[in-house]
């Protein structure tokens, strides 16, 4: 039998797959190679090879160190609080005897659907220091003594952004977790009831282990979104008041055409995001093989 270079299936797949692969190569792979190789050249000297010089300079730049710490703060707090809030929503809505489950779910989910720019603009207006509705509510309820400079002081700016991101992302977690909760086998709980297990035991020994996978997905997505978030921060604070995260740094360096720094920062952001993305993919592969 003659040896074939391509199998029958491969020959059939090529016309379907090739156009997509070419476009992906052009729009995704090539740009990644581009930014990667750019980071090893000196763009102010006509693009000559400069080794790790851009990275050395970046790591010694106090602005970069500050950005990394902002990014860590932003990412950890938004992920943790979005996840917890979303889980609480989901558990409350899922509870037996709570009516209007669909109503609660879809109305809370509105926060997630709204276009990002609208979210950011609406909150910017809501959090205006002087004459903003948020301050009016807080002052009239006696929670704050005087208007809080939400977006214009280093003390509150990052906190404000975190609140908005949690507000927007908790509904996503809620939706994922309620989907997970609905798939739990009811008979497990019935037999646990017969054995006299209380709410805590049922949650700890049945619910949580069974929701491990979906929680893992949620957390990874929240991590990647937090690291990559741009529009919310850019529109609300423009990265001022200690709110510059990696995304903003890359953009700002690019905007002033400091391409040496921008390309090195971009590669750093890429590496961080891809670390989590690879974890996610490994998980998906495990699921598919199972």
């Amino acid at each position: 039998m003659k040896r074939q270079i391509l199998t029958r299936d491969e020959k059939r797949a090529i016309p379907f797959i090739l156009p997509g692969v070419i476009v992906t190569a052009l729009l995704i792979v090539y740009p990644l190679i581009y930014i990667f190789s750019m980071s090893f050249t000196d763009q102010s000297a006509g693009g000559s090879f400069s080794g790790l010089y851009n990275y050395m300079r970046l790591f010694r730049n106090p602005q970069f160190t500050k950005t990394v710490s902002n990014t860590v703060k932003w990412t950890l707090s938004t992920v943790v609080f979005s996840f917890l809030a979303g889980c609480v929503y989901a558990m409350l809505i899922h509870r037996k005897g709570i009516k209007g489950k669909g109503f609660w779910r879809s109305t809370i989910f509105i926060a997630w659907i709204i276009p990002g720019v609208v979210k950011a603009t609406a909150w910017k207006w809501l959090l205006t220091t002087d004459g903003g509705m948020a301050n009016h509510i807080l002052v009239s309820l006696g929670i704050a003594k005087e208007p809080i400079p939400w977006l214009t002081s280093p003390r509150f700016a990052m906190l404000s952004l975190i609140i908005v991101q949690v507000w927007a992302c908790a509904p996503y977690v809620m939706l994922m977790m309620t989907a997970g909760l609905q798939q739990l086998p009811a008979d497990l709980y019935e037999s646990a009831d017969l054995d006299g297990a209380g709410w805590f035991k049922k949650t700890w020994y049945i619910t949580l282990p069974l929701l491990k996978d979906i929680s893992f997905i949620c957390i990874l997505m929240l991590l990647v979104w937090a690291i990559n978030e741009f529009s919310l921060i850019w529109i609300m604070t423009s990265g001022g008041q200690n709110t510059t995260t990696l995304s903003l740094l890359v953009y700002n360096q690019f905007k002033v055409l400091n391409l040496n720094a921008a390309s090195a920062s971009a590669v750093m952001q890429l590496l961080v995001t891809m670390f989590f993305a690879v974890l996610y993919v490994k998980f998906v592969v495990k699921e598919e093989d199972a």
């Binding site: 890359v250 952001q269 995001t273």
Partner: peptide, 8 residues
């Protein structure tokens, strides 16, 4: 990250 892709 779109901020990475936007430069190239």
């Amino acid at each position: 990250p779109l901020t990475v892709l936007m430069i190239p």
